[in-house]
Design a binder for these strands. Structure first.
Length: 869
DNA sequence: CGGATCGAC
DNA sequence: CTATGTCGATCCG
């Protein structure tokens, strides 16, 4: 079993040549060598379900490689020649567009969480320690790494490697606070700096360096402080620092930093020693340091300030693009920095022997595949460029080519809009269907909250399941109209889950993880267009029923473009209408019972939250519009509300009072987000004022969620908002979930029972236990709403295909034995500090397009801000 | 589009 | 005593 491979990969991640600061400790001296580490890990891991699954995954990778090699064997020299010419043409172009003018810096805090914990607890400083839990570690200190204790390793295995290991639980609030301190420094050097996670960021120093050339010494002078061990330095330290330095720089003889530097690569170590020494020696504490004007000096200054402010060290990489900067920051870790000078030769020299695995974006699998082609380093990647062209997708080999030329993106733009949002949870085995549903609903609730924060709605809902054997399955369903609330998402997710439970039955699903994801977001334009068209459509006085009976071509052209069409080319109104006609009977009942719930009245009685809004509605002339889906008249004050109603109808969830409230909230959030002055949503002044009250409330709500929002930098705020997500009890084991309710009922009954039991209104509709027969599976479906039944049918239709697929894929894979591929046991998962914010931005190797969407988002925010003044 | 896979942290 | 995470993007069919 080639398990060493795994650890090679992991161990080489940060390089193993770290400097040991503390050698006076008893516990840390021995450490373990690689072989011993692997042996212990192997013993702990062998035979576990986890391990078995890793083996299986590995075989699949091997299978992929095999396929690739077969493909390779069929390539003729002709093809290769042709490819060579093509690539080289591209190489020329890329080479011409090479931009070495930017100074990009990647800053990376050393062993971040562990360092924070060590800083705040003296006890820990000379002990091997890690942050996380018995089941998963987020990161470890350098002492623990000697024993092979790494990020993403389960604590119980770490304990076997290092019995003295101290495991400290995660403390996100603390890390966030420290991160904020660091970011406050970074933003001074680049207003648009890009935080990647709590402990990592890119800054573009180009502009700063230009200005810096004219800076007086005073502005580049900083003082060593001794007392910076106190963690909560909330005061504006820097402003004081700067003022102080400008005032006193002449009266104190500054330590010129340049004097203390050693040539090139060596200086990093000395820098650390300097700071370290002076902090320990009080008599030197008053000294000032003047930093130079070069990129290196500036980055030293940044690192110095970070260390002074947080007592934590950071490493940095300086290079002409993001890809290189990131690789560089790893080079002299911990507490070091490395720079690639901005000329082609230096870049190429750096790239020359660089293992491709070090490059961000090249993970375990890609590494292995390329290795099969004899490619380990960037030079080899370049040499094989023609071959690679023929074996990988275009985006992949473009990426490879850029890497092998040392190219990367030269401006650190924020990511474009996100494409999906999800939440998932691991827990101890759950195999009771009713619990599956409750859990699923919880996830939907969490996700809905997150979506609300960003005002997103998406059309496809994906359910993710991982069983106790670590096998992962995802099931997705795309609805016609975007969803965002707990109820809407759950309505879909529930059906997906139901389908899985039914397929598995009579065996129960034995799950260890469940997740829910929403994707296919509408972008701003889409939302607006959609809205506008609906407005025109309704104002034109066309009655929905006459319109929807027309063939799509005869619809207003604009409408045709915007409304989604079904695969049969039908207008989606048509489809929905057909569905309804097909089920006329239940529909009437549905409609009838809904009429018992006038939405406005419900709102009146539902707490203060909506009062202001209700007044607003009273004060404006409410319009009466007819819903094209349910054909009922809707009294509504804004188009938004009306659209929500339509969405709801399409989701089959009319008449749920909880949802009405949710929609109100949504609407407010939308108002907050979008330009209120926009002509497409006319509001009279009176109403505006009332809206403001509401919006302020929502703002507050959003702020509460985001924690703090006082940062001058919009990016900081958004990144904090994202991080907020991660703080919500992650990694918490399912111990606190509701205890299992004994149930021998069938799945469907379980759901309804659960809903009754928990006083949760049925997500949709009010049919009383109607039994319908599914035209696909021919099974009786006891259902509470028509929409649910429809969804069941849809899921059933999918199921046939899904089943086929799963049979195909599990069959042959299961036949393969481990014995065939003895060299396969690589368990490597390039994991590091977990539980950090994910802002997956690869140091984009593809040229970035200027994002007009981003600009719009910002401009709309500005408008809102103005509005509040 | 749906599902699996990859990579980041 | 047990015990291996969470998220987003992309690729492939």
């Amino acid at each position: 079993m080639d398990n060493t491979k795994k650890h090679d990969a992991v161990l080489s991640d940060e390089g193993f040549q770290f400097k040991m600061e503390l050698n006076d400790n008893k516990a840390g001296m021995e450490g373990l060598d690689k072989e011993k580490i692997n042996k212990i890990i192997m013993e702990a891991t062998k035979g576990s379900r986890f391990y078995e699954n890793e083996l299986k995954k590995d075989q699949q990778v091997n299978h992929r490689i095999e396929k690739m090699m077969q493909q390779k064997a069929q390539i003729t020299s002709q093809q290769l020649k042709k490819a060579q010419i093509q690539v080289d043409k591209l190489v020329m172009e890329l080479e011409e567009s090479r931009d070495l003018s930017r100074v990009i810096v990647h800053i990376d805090m050393d062993a971040f969480y562990a360092s924070v914990e060590m800083r705040d607890n003296l006890e820990l400083r000379d002990k091997p320690m890690a942050v996380g839990s018995m089941s998963m570690l987020s990161t470890s200190n350098y002492l623990a790494r000697r024993f092979g204790v790494r990020a993403a390793m389960p604590g119980f295995i770490a304990k076997k490697l290092c019995p003295n290991l101290v495991i400290v639980p995660l403390n996100f609030d603390k890390y966030r606070a420290v991160s904020k301190d660091v970011r406050e420094i970074l933003v001074e050097y680049d207003l648009n700096f890009l935080p990647l996670s709590l402990d990592e960021a890119y800054i573009d120093l180009t502009e700063h360096l230009k200005e810096r050339l004219n800076w007086s010494k005073g502005k580049r002078t900083y003082f060593l402080r001794r007392d910076s061990t106190t963690e909560n330095s909330k005061k504006e330290d820097h402003m004081k620092e700067v003022v102080e330095s400008s005032l006193h720089v002449h009266s104190i003889s500054p330590v010129l930093f340049e004097d203390n530097t050693l040539p090139a690569d060596e200086e990093n170590g000395s820098m650390h020693e300097l700071n370290f020494a002076k902090q320990q020696v009080p008599s030197l504490a008053e000294h000032a340091i003047v930093f130079g004007t070069s990129a290196e000096e500036t980055v030293k200054e940044i690192r110095f300030r970070i260390e002074q402010k947080t007592t934590l060290t950071a490493s940095a990489g300086i290079a002409p693009n993001m890809m290189l900067a990131k690789v560089c920051s790893d080079k002299n870790k911990p507490n070091g920095q490395f720079r690639i000078p901005p000329n082609r030769q230096d870049v190429m020299d750096f790239i020359k022997d660089l293992p491709i695995r070090k490059v961000p974006g090249i993970g375990r699998v890609t590494e292995k595949m390329l290795k099969a082609l004899g490619i380990t380093t960037c030079t080899e990647l370049y040499q094989q460029r023609a071959l690679v062209t023929l074996l990988f997708s275009e985006t992949s080999w473009h990426n490879f080519l850029n890497i092998s030329l040392g190219l990367g993106s030269t401006h650190i733009e924020k990511d474009g809009e996100r494409k999906s949002m999800s939440t998932e949870r691991t827990f101890s085995e759950i195999s009771v269907a009713s619990e599956h549903y409750t859990l699923c609903q919880e996830l939907c609730r969490d996700l809905a909250q997150d979506l609300l924060k960003e005002g997103l709605k998406g059309k496809t809902v994906t359910l993710k399941l991982k069983n106790v054997n670590f096998e992962v399955k995802t099931r997705a369903y795309t609805v016609l109209s975007a969803v965002s609330t707990e109820e809407e998402i759950f309505a879909v997710a529930k059906e997906l889950l139901r389908a899985e439970i039914e397929i598995a039955s009579p065996q129960p699903l034995r799950l260890r993880l469940m997740g829910v994801r929403v994707s296919s977001f509408l972008n701003e334009e889409e939302k607006k267009h959609h809205q506008k068209s609906i407005l025109n459509f309704l104002q034109a006085g066309k009655v929905a029923s006459t319109l929807s009976s027309l063939p799509p071509e005869k619809l207003e052209p604009r409408l045709c473009n915007i409304l989604p069409l079904t695969s049969h080319g039908e207008s989606f109104f048509n489809k929905k209408r057909a569905e309804m006609q097909q089920n006329r009977e239940p529909l009437r009942e549905d409609t009838l019972s809904q009429q018992k719930m006038p939405s406005l009245k419900t709102l009146e009685t539902t707490g203060q939250e909506t009062n202001g809004k209700r007044d607003a509605e009273k004060s404006t002339e409410s319009q009466i519009l007819t819903c094209p889906v349910c054909f009922r008249k809707q009294e509504t004050s804004s188009l938004e509300t009306f659209n929500k109603h339509i969405d709801k109808c399409l989701m089959g969830a009319c008449g749920d009072p909880n949802m009405e409230i949710q929609y109100k909230k949504d609407e407010l959030l939308m108002l907050k987000k979008s330009d209120i002055n926009n002509a497409s949503t006319p509001l009279d002044d009176k109403k505006k004022n009332l809206e403001i009250l509401q919006i302020n409330k929502v703002n507050k709500l959003v702020e509460d969620c985001e924690g703090h929002s006082s940062s001058s930098n919009a990016e900081t705020v958004t990144s904090i908002a994202v991080e907020c997500k991660q703080s919500k009890e992650k990694g918490s084991k399912g111990s606190d979930r509701p205890s299992a309710t004994a149930s021998n009922m069938c799945c469907l009954q379980n759901v309804s029972a659960k809903e009754v039991e928990t006083q949760q209104p049925c997500t949709s509709g009010t049919l009383e236990d109607t039994v319908l027969i599914c035209p696909v599976c021919n099974l009786e479906q006891k259902t509470t709403s028509l929409a649910l039944f429809n969804r069941h049918v849809d899921v059933c239709l999918n199921k046939g295909i899904i089943q086929k697929l799963t049979e195909e894929s599990t069959g042959p894979a299961g036949c393969d034995t481990a014995a065939n591929t003895p060299s396969s046991g690589s368990l490597g998962r390039g994991q590091q500090d977990i539980n950090t914010t994910t802002r997956t931005k690869r140091p984009g190797l593809m040229p970035q397009q200027p994002s007009s969407k981003k600009a719009k988002a910002i401009s709309s925010r500005n408008t809102i801000d103005k509005f509040f003044k």
